[in-house]
């Protein structure tokens, strides 16, 4: 059994930095873009559960093999996937993705990345993130400063957080909203 802290730190250090490469891999090998977030989450859970027993020696090949196997399983279950796609997956050479080097951004590059991620957020959402993240205001203080309810601040914060994290990990950084008619109340709240 892997120690809980070691497992977490392995996931931070070795798996999550591969997300841009993983996302590219999924885009190339799965047609329906709308499944991307679900697929990625399931693949992460799959490698995390496997690593509970023992940490893999080499994370990168392990992650991409798991990703491929997961796509094959999904393709088997979803009968609408064209047969040639399925064949492609089976014969997929996962070594291709080794071409992208893992690279640690400098602090300056990283800051620039955060800034451009921020610029993509809608104004109100951006303000909430800045008040809370840069000025360190609490939810209540941010609400008072902006003259909106705490609920609004929390909603904007949750959206901004998801979009920014997505952008930091190589995604588009766009806010994903549910269907318009769904009200906030239907979602589970912690």
């Amino acid at each position: 059994m892997t120690d809980a802290e070691a497992l977490k730190s392995w996931f931070f250090r070795e798996v999550l930095p591969l997300e841009p490469a993983l996302t590219r891999f999924l885009r190339r090998n799965w047609r329906n873009r709308e499944d991307l977030v679900d697929l990625r989450q399931e693949i992460y859970a799959r490698v995390y559960d496997a690593a509970r027993k023992r940490l893999p020696v080499q994370t990168r090949p392990f992650l991409f093999t798991s990703a491929r196997n997961h796509l094959i399983n999904c393709a088997r279950r979803a009968q609408v996937v064209p047969i040639e796609h399925f064949v492609q997956l089976e014969s997929l050479n996962i070594a291709v993705d080794n071409a992208t080097p893992d690279r640690y951004a400098s602090a300056r590059e990283e800051l620039r990345r955060v800034q451009s991620g921020l610029e993509r957020l809608p104004p109100r959402c951006r303000e909430v993130v800045m008040l809370r993240k840069i000025e360190g205001l609490s939810q209540r203080e941010a609400a008072a400063r902006m003259g909106v309810s705490e609920d609004t601040v929390e909603r904007q914060m949750v959206q901004g957080m998801r979009a920014l994290v997505d952008f930091m990990l190589g995604g588009s950084g766009r806010i994903r909203r549910g269907p318009k008619k769904r009200s906030g109340k239907e979602e589970h709240r912690p």
Binding site: Y44, V114, G117, L118, I134, V165, M168, L169
Partner: peptide, 14 residues
């Protein structure tokens, strides 16, 4: 964990 990881990188801002 993924959000925690990405969000800590946003900390750089401060």
């Amino acid at each position: 964990l993924r959000l925690e990881y990405g969000w800590s990188r946003v900390d750089r801002l401060a």
